[in-house]
Amino acid sequence: MVAKFGGHGYGMAILFVVIGAILGGILGQLLTGVEALSGVMPYLVNTFPVFDTSAFTINLYVIQLTLGLAFAPNLMSILGIVIALILFRRY
């Protein structure tokens, strides 16, 4: 039995959210050069650190792994997440 979110699996919902956040962030960075939006873009691309874990290293003698995670969205990436969830609900 697969867990469902709006008729689809949670994996597909997470994929939509991640892609929406990435595309929203990229769009925000692309729009920073637009002269007409120069007054509002600094607010839309300013990041807000939610959490940041310091990197740690696991030495397995054959492979050395360094892992860390940070989540610092900006308003454009949050807008991308909202649009992705709306599109996912229609999907």
Results as ranks from 00 to 15, higher is better:
T57F: 04
M76G: 02
V40N: 00
A21W: 01
G80K: 01
L31W: 10
N46F: 08
R90W: 08
P73G: 12
F51S: 02
A72I: 01
T32V: 12
F16T: 01
A55T: 14
L79V: 15
A3D: 09
L15P: 03
L85N: 07
V18P: 02
V82C: 10
K4H: 09
P49G: 10
L75K: 01
L23E: 05
I19P: 04
A55L: 04
V62A: 05
F5H: 10
P42M: 13
A55G: 13
F51H: 04
S77F: 00
I78W: 12
L75S: 01
R89H: 11
A72H: 14
V40G: 00
F48R: 05
A55I: 07
V50G: 04
K4G: 03
N74E: 08
M1S: 14
F88G: 01
Q29A: 10
E35N: 13
A36M: 12
G80F: 02
M41P: 05
A55R: 09
L60V: 06
Y91S: 13
S54W: 08
G7P: 06
S38M: 00
V17L: 13
Y61I: 01
S77T: 04
M76V: 15
I58M: 11
F56L: 10
G25A: 05
V34A: 05
L37T: 02
P73W: 09
V50I: 15
T53W: 05
Y91W: 13
I19F: 06
L85F: 01
L87S: 06
M12L: 14
D52Y: 05
I83T: 15
L79K: 00
